[in-house]
Amino acid sequence: MRKLNSPMIYELRRPAQTEPGKTYPALFLMHGIGSNEQNMLSLVNGLEDRFYIFSVRGHLLQPPGFAYFTIQGYGKPHRDVFDEGINKLTSFIDYASAEYPLDKNQLFLLGFSQGAILSMTLGLTLGNRIKGIIALSGYIPAFVKEEYNIQPVNELSLFISHGEMDQVLPFEWGLANNEYFRELGADVTFKTYQEGHTVSMENHKDFMQWLLEKVEL
């Protein structure tokens, strides 16, 4: 779906019954490269009773699906394309917060691979505006750490996971994400799995449990 004034195409799931005047936690989903907004929804089945869930489609065509940025080399996004993706996603979070009855103190991000890279970067640029991030198999680009305007993350919680046999994004990058956010004072839960570049059932169970512990209803 896409409302006329929305900066990005998205799929929305929300509680069947909403109470007038009440606000709800929000969950923004970001997919991996070549995927789409439908792909992530199966990971959060059942959460629509509690959350407004926005699954956001990448704005770039990347057959068989979409992407939010392009890559010039290993672990190196094209800077201008990446900046544009971050700006668009920030605008979308602002748009959703204005358009829907969201609890602005309970905004959560969930991303896999390219989506995890963006989720962690948005955590750094939006800081404590975000309550929690689930980052599955990603990394933080060097230029983000070195040149972006990093906001305080002392109230931010993260669930970061990585497969020990990840053949796409090295396991060491997952270790580095954990260390980096801890040094900034964020509350990090770091989990590793005997997996490749994927979301295992155990990983799924762990992050769902983490999310339900973090959300306030």
Results as ranks from 00 to 15, higher is better:
Phe51His: 09
Ile53Ala: 10
Ser55Ala: 11
Arg57Thr: 05
Gly58His: 05
Gly58Ala: 07
Gly58Gln: 07
Pro63Leu: 11
Pro63Thr: 13
Pro63Glu: 11
Gly65Gln: 06
Phe66Ile: 06
Phe66Gly: 01
Phe69Gln: 02
Thr70Ser: 14
Thr70Val: 14
Gln72Asn: 08
Gln72Phe: 12
Gly75Pro: 07
Lys76Tyr: 15
Lys76Ile: 14
Lys76Asn: 12
Pro77Gln: 08
Pro77Trp: 00
His78Gln: 14
Arg79Pro: 06
Arg79Trp: 03
Asp80Leu: 11
Asp80Ser: 13
Glu84Tyr: 00
Glu84Ile: 03
Glu84Leu: 08
Glu84Ser: 09
Gly85Pro: 10
Gly85Met: 04
Ile86Phe: 02
Lys88Arg: 15
Lys88Glu: 06
Leu89Ile: 04
Thr90Ala: 09
Ser91Ala: 15
Ser91Asn: 13
Phe92Cys: 12
Phe92Gly: 07
Phe92Thr: 15
Asp94Glu: 12
Asp94Lys: 08
Ser97Phe: 02
Ser97Ile: 04
Ala98Gln: 13
Glu99Tyr: 04
Pro101Gln: 05
Pro101Ala: 05
Pro101Leu: 05
Leu102Asn: 00
Lys104Cys: 15
Gln106Ile: 02
Gln106Val: 03
Leu107Pro: 02
Leu107Gly: 02
Leu107Glu: 01
Phe108Tyr: 15
Leu109Asp: 05
Leu110Pro: 08
Phe112Glu: 07
Phe112Val: 14
Phe112Gln: 11
Ser113Asp: 13
Gln114Met: 14
Gln114Val: 13
Gln114Pro: 10
Gly115His: 05
Gly115Tyr: 03
Ala116Phe: 04
Ile117Thr: 03
Ile117Asp: 01
Ile117Phe: 01
Ile117Arg: 02
Ser119Ile: 02
Ser119Asp: 03
Met120Ile: 09
Met120Ala: 14
Leu122Cys: 07
Leu122Lys: 08
Gly123His: 02
Leu124Cys: 08
Leu126Pro: 00
Leu126Cys: 03
Leu126Asp: 00
Gly127Asp: 07
Arg129Asp: 04
Lys131Tyr: 04
Ile133Tyr: 09
Ala135Met: 10
Ala135Asn: 06
Ser137Gln: 08
Ser137Asp: 04
Gly138Pro: 08
